[in-house]
Design a protein around this nucleic acid. Sequence first.
DNA 1: CGGAATGTTGATATGCCTCAACTAAAGTGG
DNA 2: CCACTTTAGTTGAGGCATATCAACATTCCG
Lengths: 242, 242
Amino acid sequence: MENAHQTLIGKLRKHSRLTGDDIAEIRSFSYFIRSLSPNEDVIRQGDEPDASALVLSGIVTRYHLLDDGRRQYLSFHMAGDLPDAQALFIEKMDHAVGAIGSAVVASIPHREIKRAFERRPNVGFAIWKETLIDAAIFREAITNNSARSIRTRMAHLFCEIFYRACASGIAKDDTLSFPISLGQLADTLGVAIASINRALHELRASRTMDFRNGRLTIENWPKLIEIGCFNPVYLHLRKPPL
Amino acid sequence: MENAHQTLIGKLRKHSRLTGDDIAEIRSFSYFIRSLSPNEDVIRQGDEPDASALVLSGIVTRYHLLDDGRRQYLSFHMAGDLPDAQALFIEKMDHAVGAIGSAVVASIPHREIKRAFERRPNVGFAIWKETLIDAAIFREAITNNSARSIRTRMAHLFCEIFYRACASGIAKDDTLSFPISLGQLADTLGVAIASINRALHELRASRTMDFRNGRLTIENWPKLIEIGCFNPVYLHLRKPPL
DNA sequence: CGGAATGTTGATATGCCTCAACTAAAGTGG
DNA sequence: CCACTTTAGTTGAGGCATATCAACATTCCG
């Protein structure tokens, strides 16, 4: 596995330009590694963390815990992502962050990240930009879950995940490990498990994509894009991977 | 009407601490005033603006334009908000920004805002924090539109709007001008107009709140909070207005 | 090997959408 | 200022997509 500094630098460079000094500053970050079991939380709603997690491997999710105990999954994060960067400036977490499947994260103290902002504003701008892209992904999720059919929602979600996985380098050809359950998928797209299952079977039968046992396989990318009304502009990548 | 500097300073201070030097830096911003007619756009999807709008009066919205011409409204903004601050670091707009009813905005050049960051990092952090709170509002909208009944969605939306309007100072006692049509409400909550209408009549009949002719009146705030499962933590206000 | 969690499938119920017909309000031009 | 047009709001009837429920199959994991 790459080290945390390299993972972060590689990620930031996908969206921003960094100078040698910026990179040196990032390399000065200390961190500690944390290995997560499936469904283990990194942070809980209400916590006030003093470090931010950088995903090194596996899938990490952000979710709301509802009054009745249900969950609403908000986003999924992979190697290079900073799923709780917002805690740098907002003390109390309004949502939780946890692993889907096994994952490894590097915990970087806020203090060091903030010091970097003062010394190299450019590093701050790059991380700020990451949080802005997060926001764009949230906006797209609003539209996806509000204005589209189950079939389209599902296709769109998998388009986004696969596209980002390609950018992140964790997708192998047309396949990707994404160990999420149907129940979690239901709590992501805002529909019942039974409906998730049926939509999944439909995409499988039409040889568009196949998701089973936590593995996503793309069989017909153009068709999946069309079904999902997917337009990757909102991901704001400098070099589109596909 | 207050001037733009004062509006911005007042807003940032609701979430962040600013020193005298920070405030002086903000006062150095140049801007020009732009008056908007109902439904006029400030920026369109695909634009690459070089200035950010600060809302001075009226309601401004952010929305996605879908393939079939429909709209998905994403958020609403009022005096003090910076609805397109993200364009500071993301060149191409992935959504549009426009007025609901008549509105007035101040356009501040990106160049000047970025210069302020270099001179007073604290000013940058305060604006960054605003964009992070925006993201929290988006997350809440995902949950609202995905995991709640129409009735609850509607109550939650009006709770948020009224709460923020109080913080912003534009609500008078228990009433607020919010000149949105039922069709726009439908395109916000992801439901049909007919359903919006019926939910509205239900809230009116139960004397919880009344929305008509672009005016929101709260009749029973505790009840509205309960119906909407509203918890304002995600708005991250230093001093809750209610 | 046994138990729990997850996935599968059909039958039934229902909330919401669609459509349509109508009313009310707002904007426009003579 | 009024007639006209357009837009917004209202309401009921009917249909459909999706939720719910239940029973069972499969996989995972200790």
